[in-house]
């Protein structure tokens, strides 16, 4: 089997030393601490009352949200320096002068970072499994959530790789990656609410299309579907809609996943194109 050599090399290098173990320990500590606090708050009087499935969904939501936030922090950090780091270390030319295609370099880097995120997600399973003690959430639902995490991580990672290719410095790439993440989470909300408030009115009953691009909306929609409420139950303007915010009969999180796939594909293609020095210049010349 022909495994991407960049991926193999990256895995070897990344897993060497204490850094990888340190990241996992820190990640799990944060997750465990938050889980403990949420569960303590929910179940501190567990022996005097009956188990309420509503509390399980509350804990599940809190855990799922914390994990999502952590992934959104970790994934860009792992990829924003992937290419610019090679440039800074003066190793990029050595890679580019080999027969390895720029797409393979980009994919190798992305997959290496994603496997590290995947490791964090898998390592968090024991903490997540406390949910099953109280029922209310099925394994299939957790699997669905984890698949959503992986897609979100790949998208965030692609944004990081994209800036890493286009910007020379890792610091600038990191700032821009987090900036784009912040725009997708907060910016799309502000723009949507500004537009709804000014042009559509607060009693707007539809699902505002821009919000399909928002990962938090996708996440809320996924959890809403899992709990059987639908995202419309949140009741916020822009998230309502006669069919519970569905485009073509699809839940917002499904549309968001499709958006992530398209965005990832475009960003990888643009990154590979940018990395190819001959291709970029030729295009510019033709344009001139």
């Amino acid at each position: 089997m022909n495994i991407n050599p960049v991926l193999l090399k990256e895995l070897k290098v990344r897993m060497r030393g204490w850094r990888a173990a340190g990241i996992i320990i820190l990640y799990l500590l944060v997750l465990a601490l938050v889980t403990f606090m949420v569960m303590y708050e929910s179940y501190n009087n567990i022996y005097t009352s009956t188990v309420d499935p509503g509390r399980t969904t509350g804990t599940y939501t809190a855990l799922a949200l914390i994990q999502l936030v952590l992934i959104l922090f970790v994934a860009p950090a792992l990829t924003a320096g992937a290419i610019s780091g090679e440039r800074e270390k003066q190793t990029l030319d050595l890679l580019l002068c080999t027969k390895l295609s720029t797409r393979s370099i980009v994919l190798g880097k992305l997959l290496a970072s994603m496997s590290q995120v995947l490791l964090l997600i898998v390592a968090s399973l024991p903490i997540f499994s406390v949910i099953f003690m109280f029922g209310g959430i099925s394994i299939a639902e957790v699997a669905q959530l984890f698949a959503f995490y992986i897609i979100i991580a790949i998208t965030a990672g692609s944004i990081g790789i994209f800036y890493s290719c286009y910007l020379k410095r890792t610091t600038a790439a990191t700032v821009m990656t987090y900036g784009t993440g912040a725009f997708l989470i907060l910016g799309t909300f502000f723009i949507s609410y500004f537009y709804i408030g000014v042009f559509l009115g607060w009693d707007y009953q539809g699902f505002f299309p821009l919000l399909y691009t928002n990962p938090m909306v996708g996440f809320a929609s996924l959890l809403g579907d899992q709990f059987g409420y639908g995202i419309g139950s949140i009741g916020l303007p822009g998230l309502r809609g006669s069919t519970d915010g569905r485009l073509l009969g699809l839940s917002p999180w499904v549309v968001h996943v499709a958006f992530d796939f398209v965005l990832t594909a475009v960003l990888i293609a643009l990154s590979a194109r940018k990395l190819n020095p001959v291709r970029v210049k030729r295009t510019r010349r033709n344009a001139a």
Binding site: K9, K12, R16, K89, Q90
Partner: peptide, 12 residues
């Protein structure tokens, strides 16, 4: 190709 300035990977 051997460039005039180049770096190497750590941990390899």
């Amino acid at each position: 190709y051997m460039p005039d300035f180049f770096g190497v990977y750590d941990d390899l």
